[in-house]
Design a protein around this nucleic acid. Structure first.
Length: 154
RNA sequence: CCAGACGGUCGGAUGGCUGCUUCGGGGCCGGUCCGCCGGCACCGGGGAGGAAAGUCCGGGCUCCACGGAAAUCGGGUGCCGGGUAACGCCCGGCGAGGGUGACCUUAGGGAAAGUGCAACAGAAAGCAAACCGCCGGUCCGGCAAGGUGCUUCGGCCCCAUCGCCCGGCCGGUAAGGGUGAAAGGGUGCGGUAAGAGCGCACCGCGCCAAGGGCAACCGCGGCGGCAUUGUAAACCCCACCUGGAGCAAGACCAAGUAGGGACGGCGGGCCUUAGUGCCAGACGGGUUUCCGCGUCGCCGUCCGGGUCGGUCGCGCGAGGCGUUCGGUAACGGGCGUCCCAGAUGAAUGGCCAUCCCCGAGAUUUGGCCUCGGCCUAAUUUCGGGACAGAACCCGGCUUAUAGACCGUCUGGCGUU
RNA sequence: UGGGGCGUAGCCAAGUGGUAAGGCAGCGGUUUUUGAUACCGCCAUUCGCAGGUUCGAUCCCUGCCGCCCCAG
């Protein structure tokens, strides 16, 4: 079963994902992830008249957000980076993403120039590796220590 | 052919796979107050720019209850005429400056309304003079020649016409005065004691002015011997323009809270038996005043409460294209034709292939040939193809921009 | 979207029409056995960039570039 994919839209949602400090740095992109806490379905007698779309969803869908900062370039470059990330995520996230998780894809300067197949590989490994290792307690995470060499060997 | 000036156009093309958004169509599902509303997939159509950018001007639109008038505070503009809804924009012309030329640049009103400033240098920096010089006179002083007198023969004293010099006084000058951005016209001739527009010629300047032009302005001719140095992107004066805020404007729907509480201060005057009276007062999106209008106990401090969901606004417009007429042009009128983006963590894409252009390398054909290269054509490999993304909408300005194309014109060289 | 401000040496900064103060840092020297201190000297020429006004511009005007702040 492929879960439903939604978008992250508000600043608060992005900050929540970043607050988990679960990330994977690839040459073409950075992936942050957050597992949403399992929410009990509300009691049926409480009506919940309207629901803001910014509230936490109740099902186990996957939500994805995209961020490209001004460091990447002007508006044209940022748009292009976000579109490439979106195209890669559109095919890979329904396959490799884990249900009930939120993901944030951060664009880098290399997002523009990297071959699209390499970018897909980056996202595929990132989706499988993110959150597997304990983040930053004492001994270094695999990317913070060897980031300089990591680009070349990735 | 080379170099250049001006104006304009485009700003990758085609195809495939796969997405997003919007509009239309019919279908299915759900809801329904039967008007419709929402969702899902399918088919078909549309889907960034010349600057979408910077946000520097001008408008439309919306609200501020905002109706009227003025002031001038503030701000802006600044040769003239035209265009325009309007503009600080555009077109045409004038003046000034630059270029051999095509052409380019130009915030370009007023400096005899007033104020300020002009460092250093320099005699002097703004109103005309002083100073140094030059010239004349004067005689007070000095020197020398000459004369007379005295003498210790070294010289000394006295005198006046002329001569010289220094100093003083009186007067004439503005030619000259290492400067400086700028010094009270320039050059030449005459003239003079020395000089000076003092006189003359040419140039420049100012005033008047026939005539031309809608005007800015040009100016035949005449007059004046020359006067107001510059700076207004210094204050300023003059003329003209000018309410404020901005689509997060604003409107509606849904949901939901509140139509607040505490403390302190002040709550004016007049008439009346009595106010629902009159006068005054405060506030009314940012200067002041007046008229009109609306609202109202007012002011200060503290406490408390609500919101960031949806729909509309939102694209038929000072609209695009073609053609014709008027106009030097900007532009305007007529006719025909077209409907051409509407997102909201924000769509308009992602990937691939072929072609096109440019650069570099390799191989080959032909030519030159100093046997090392150059030119030309073909094949192939690699790399590159700009500036840049609508956010309410228009008109401009400014800035960025690889490359390609078209037209007009100028200068030079060559050929006929 | 609207409004305001800043840019001067490696750093902090004054100056607002007439040759760009000062401090820290740096370099050189004197003093000291050496070091610290103290003293002396040096260090801006595109005052963010490009035009213009003016005799003359860091200053005035115009257009760009970069940064910061405020309101919604």
């Amino acid at each position: 079963m492929t879960p439903i994919v939604r978008r992250l839209k508000t600043r608060q949602q992005f900050l929540k994902v970043a607050g988990t400090r679960q990330k994977w740095v690839a040459p073409g992109l950075i992936l942050q992830s957050r597992r949403r806490p399992a929410v009990e379905p509300p009691a049926p007698q409480t009506p919940i008249p309207i629901r803001s779309p910014r509230a936490e969803p109740l099902d186990d869908c996957i939500r994805v957000g995209f961020t490209v900062s001004k460091k990447v370039g002007n508006a044209v470059a940022r748009n292009r980076a976000r579109r490439r990330l979106r195209a890669a995520a559109a095919t890979l996230v329904p396959q490799a993403g884990r249900a009930g998780h939120d993901y944030v894809l951060i664009g880098r300067k290399e997002t523009l120039t990297r071959d699209f197949s390499d970018l897909m590989d980056d996202l595929r490994t990132a989706l499988s590796r993110v959150g597997k290792k304990k983040p930053a307690k004492g001994q270094g995470t695999p990317y913070t220590k060897g980031r300089g060499k990591g680009i070349g060997q990735a």
